[in-house]
């Protein structure tokens, strides 16, 4: 399972951090930490453990911009 985040849509609301705190984080300026992990508008994670599925699905639902996608 992987997640992708559309960083052009993302507005750093941070709701994902509360749903899946081991996957998402905000940096010291309150920006999604994945922004520094990629040059483009799209972040794609490494393979994530299946035990995180509920959390990342909750994060995807909680995103005000619907910028998170969960890939099987």
């Amino acid at each position: 399972m992987r997640i992708t985040v559309d960083l052009a849509k993302c507005q750093d609301h941070g709701q994902c951090v509360y749903s899946a705190p081991t996957v998402f984080a905000l940096d010291a300026e309150g920006k999604l930490a994945f922004r520094t992990a990629t040059d483009g508008d799209r972040y794609r994670s490494e393979d994530l453990d299946e035990s995180l599925r509920d959390d990342v699905e909750e994060a995807a639902d909680a995103c005000p911009l619907q910028a998170i996608m969960v890939e099987d």
Partner: peptide, 8 residues
Amino acid sequence: IGLPQRYQ
């Protein structure tokens, strides 16, 4: 208003 670094 503003202060995104203080949300958490």
